[in-house]
Amino acid sequence: MALLRHGRVGSCHRVFSETGFGECAARDVIVTLRSFLEDQTSPTPHREDVGIRLRPDDDPALLANNLDAVSLIEVEFPKYTDGRGYSIAQLLRRRYGYSGELRAVGQILRDQLLLMKRSGFDAVAFDHPDTEGVYAEAVGELSEVYQAAADGSISIFLRRRTDLSPGRLT
Protein backbone atom coordinates (compact mmCIF):
# COMPACT_ATOMS: atom_id res chain seq x y z
CA MET A 1 0.00 0.00 0.00
CA ALA A 2 1.45 3.33 -1.05
CA LEU A 3 1.54 6.18 1.38
CA LEU A 4 1.07 9.67 0.05
CA ARG A 5 2.09 12.71 2.05
CA HIS A 6 1.02 16.00 0.55
CA GLY A 7 0.55 14.11 -2.66
CA ARG A 8 4.05 12.61 -2.76
CA VAL A 9 4.86 8.97 -2.26
CA GLY A 10 6.48 8.44 1.09
CA SER A 11 7.07 5.65 3.52
CA CYS A 12 6.36 4.84 7.10
CA HIS A 13 8.12 2.24 9.18
CA ARG A 14 5.62 2.26 12.02
CA VAL A 15 3.49 -0.82 12.56
CA PHE A 16 0.04 -0.94 14.01
CA SER A 17 -0.13 -2.62 17.38
CA GLU A 18 -3.51 -3.69 18.67
CA THR A 19 -2.02 -4.40 22.08
CA GLY A 20 -0.29 -1.15 22.92
CA PHE A 21 3.32 -0.03 23.03
CA GLY A 22 4.77 -3.20 24.59
CA GLU A 23 8.53 -2.96 24.45
CA CYS A 24 8.54 -0.75 21.36
CA ALA A 25 9.58 2.87 21.16
CA ALA A 26 6.63 5.18 20.60
CA ARG A 27 7.88 6.20 17.17
CA ASP A 28 7.88 2.61 15.92
CA VAL A 29 4.23 1.80 16.53
CA ILE A 30 0.73 3.02 16.04
CA VAL A 31 -1.60 2.25 18.93
CA THR A 32 -5.30 2.38 19.53
CA LEU A 33 -6.93 5.32 21.28
CA ARG A 34 -7.56 3.12 24.23
CA SER A 35 -3.93 1.99 24.55
CA PHE A 36 -2.83 5.59 24.27
CA LEU A 37 -5.19 6.83 26.99
CA GLU A 38 -4.16 3.98 29.31
CA ASP A 39 -0.53 4.76 28.67
CA GLN A 40 -1.03 8.45 29.42
CA THR A 41 -2.25 7.64 32.92
CA SER A 42 0.52 5.10 33.54
CA PRO A 43 3.61 5.99 35.65
CA THR A 44 5.82 6.10 32.56
CA PRO A 45 3.75 7.57 29.77
CA HIS A 46 5.06 8.08 26.25
CA ARG A 47 5.15 11.84 25.87
CA GLU A 48 6.58 12.20 22.40
CA ASP A 49 6.10 11.05 18.87
CA VAL A 50 3.11 8.85 19.52
CA GLY A 51 1.10 7.43 16.63
CA ILE A 52 -2.57 6.65 17.15
CA ARG A 53 -5.17 4.95 15.02
CA LEU A 54 -8.73 6.14 15.50
CA ARG A 55 -11.72 4.01 14.66
CA PRO A 56 -14.68 5.90 13.25
CA ASP A 57 -16.62 5.67 16.50
CA ASP A 58 -13.73 6.95 18.61
CA ASP A 59 -14.25 10.36 20.15
CA PRO A 60 -11.40 12.71 19.24
CA ALA A 61 -12.33 14.92 22.19
CA LEU A 62 -10.55 12.39 24.38
CA LEU A 63 -7.31 13.44 22.73
CA ALA A 64 -7.85 17.14 23.12
CA ASN A 65 -5.56 17.54 26.13
CA ASN A 66 -2.72 15.26 25.09
CA LEU A 67 -2.20 16.12 21.47
CA ASP A 68 1.31 17.43 22.17
CA ALA A 69 2.44 13.86 22.62
CA VAL A 70 1.08 12.83 19.23
CA SER A 71 2.80 13.15 15.88
CA LEU A 72 0.66 10.82 13.78
CA ILE A 73 -3.05 10.12 13.78
CA GLU A 74 -4.49 7.54 11.45
CA VAL A 75 -8.22 7.69 10.90
CA GLU A 76 -9.76 4.49 9.70
CA PHE A 77 -12.33 4.34 6.92
CA PRO A 78 -13.67 0.79 7.20
CA LYS A 79 -15.75 1.37 4.11
CA TYR A 80 -15.46 4.16 1.58
CA THR A 81 -19.06 5.18 2.29
CA ASP A 82 -18.45 5.63 6.00
CA GLY A 83 -18.09 9.38 6.40
CA ARG A 84 -17.40 9.67 10.12
CA GLY A 85 -13.69 10.09 9.52
CA TYR A 86 -14.28 13.44 7.86
CA SER A 87 -15.86 14.82 11.03
CA ILE A 88 -13.04 13.42 13.12
CA ALA A 89 -10.50 15.14 10.91
CA GLN A 90 -12.28 18.49 11.03
CA LEU A 91 -12.51 18.28 14.81
CA LEU A 92 -8.86 17.39 15.25
CA ARG A 93 -7.66 20.15 12.99
CA ARG A 94 -10.09 22.94 13.64
CA ARG A 95 -11.26 22.43 17.20
CA TYR A 96 -8.35 20.73 18.91
CA GLY A 97 -5.61 22.34 16.85
CA TYR A 98 -3.81 19.15 15.90
CA SER A 99 -0.97 19.91 13.49
CA GLY A 100 0.83 16.58 13.17
CA GLU A 101 0.36 14.08 10.38
CA LEU A 102 -3.27 13.15 9.79
CA ARG A 103 -3.54 10.04 7.69
CA ALA A 104 -6.55 8.33 6.16
CA VAL A 105 -6.37 4.54 6.06
CA GLY A 106 -8.78 1.79 5.13
CA GLN A 107 -10.94 1.55 2.04
CA ILE A 108 -9.98 4.66 0.17
CA LEU A 109 -10.98 5.27 -3.39
CA ARG A 110 -9.79 7.91 -5.77
CA ASP A 111 -12.98 9.92 -5.63
CA GLN A 112 -12.70 10.51 -1.89
CA LEU A 113 -9.25 12.04 -2.03
CA LEU A 114 -10.49 15.57 -2.55
CA LEU A 115 -12.87 15.33 0.41
CA MET A 116 -10.04 13.99 2.52
CA LYS A 117 -7.68 16.73 1.57
CA ARG A 118 -10.32 19.33 2.31
CA SER A 119 -11.08 17.77 5.68
CA GLY A 120 -7.48 18.18 6.80
CA PHE A 121 -5.82 14.90 5.88
CA ASP A 122 -2.28 15.50 4.70
CA ALA A 123 -1.58 11.81 4.15
CA VAL A 124 -3.49 8.87 2.72
CA ALA A 125 -2.75 5.21 2.31
CA PHE A 126 -3.86 4.73 -1.26
CA ASP A 127 -2.99 2.36 -4.05
CA HIS A 128 -2.99 3.00 -7.74
CA PRO A 129 -0.51 2.32 -10.56
CA ASP A 130 0.02 6.08 -10.80
CA THR A 131 -0.55 7.19 -7.22
CA GLU A 132 0.87 10.68 -7.40
CA GLY A 133 -0.67 11.47 -10.77
CA VAL A 134 -4.10 10.27 -9.75
CA TYR A 135 -3.92 12.12 -6.47
CA ALA A 136 -3.02 15.38 -8.16
CA GLU A 137 -5.80 14.94 -10.68
CA ALA A 138 -8.42 14.03 -8.09
CA VAL A 139 -7.72 16.85 -5.64
CA GLY A 140 -7.63 19.35 -8.48
CA GLU A 141 -11.06 18.58 -9.85
CA LEU A 142 -12.93 21.34 -8.04
CA SER A 143 -10.94 24.50 -7.56
CA GLU A 144 -13.32 26.64 -5.50
CA VAL A 145 -15.15 25.83 -2.30
CA TYR A 146 -18.37 27.02 -0.72
CA GLN A 147 -17.18 26.21 2.78
CA ALA A 148 -14.15 26.94 4.87
CA ALA A 149 -12.73 23.64 6.10
CA ALA A 150 -9.62 22.22 7.67
CA ASP A 151 -7.58 22.69 4.50
CA GLY A 152 -7.68 26.44 4.98
CA SER A 153 -9.42 27.20 1.69
CA ILE A 154 -11.36 30.42 1.61
CA SER A 155 -15.05 30.03 1.00
CA ILE A 156 -16.77 31.53 -1.99
CA PHE A 157 -18.94 33.47 0.48
CA LEU A 158 -15.76 35.35 1.39
CA ARG A 159 -14.09 35.28 -1.99
CA ARG A 160 -16.97 37.25 -3.42
CA ARG A 161 -16.14 40.23 -1.28
CA THR A 162 -14.43 42.68 -3.54
CA ASP A 163 -11.57 43.11 -1.11
CA LEU A 164 -10.89 39.40 -1.35
CA SER A 165 -10.96 39.08 -5.10
CA PRO A 166 -9.18 36.03 -6.52
CA GLY A 167 -6.39 38.28 -7.79
CA ARG A 168 -5.63 39.53 -4.31
CA LEU A 169 -5.62 36.09 -2.81
CA THR A 170 -3.54 34.06 -5.15
Binding site: G83, Q90, L114, Y146
Partner: peptide, 14 residues
Amino acid sequence: RQWSTFHPEFSHLP
Protein backbone atom coordinates in the same frame (compact mmCIF):
# COMPACT_ATOMS: atom_id res chain seq x y z
CA ARG B 1 -27.70 25.34 -1.40
CA GLN B 2 -24.28 26.92 -1.65
CA TRP B 3 -23.15 25.94 1.83
CA SER B 4 -24.22 22.33 1.35
CA THR B 5 -22.74 21.92 -2.13
CA PHE B 6 -19.71 19.61 -2.06
CA HIS B 7 -19.48 19.97 1.71
CA PRO B 8 -16.39 17.89 2.44
CA GLU B 9 -17.59 16.71 5.83
CA PHE B 10 -21.13 15.81 4.85
CA SER B 11 -20.79 13.98 1.56
CA HIS B 12 -20.91 10.48 3.06
CA LEU B 13 -23.66 10.76 5.62
CA PRO B 14 -25.37 7.67 7.02
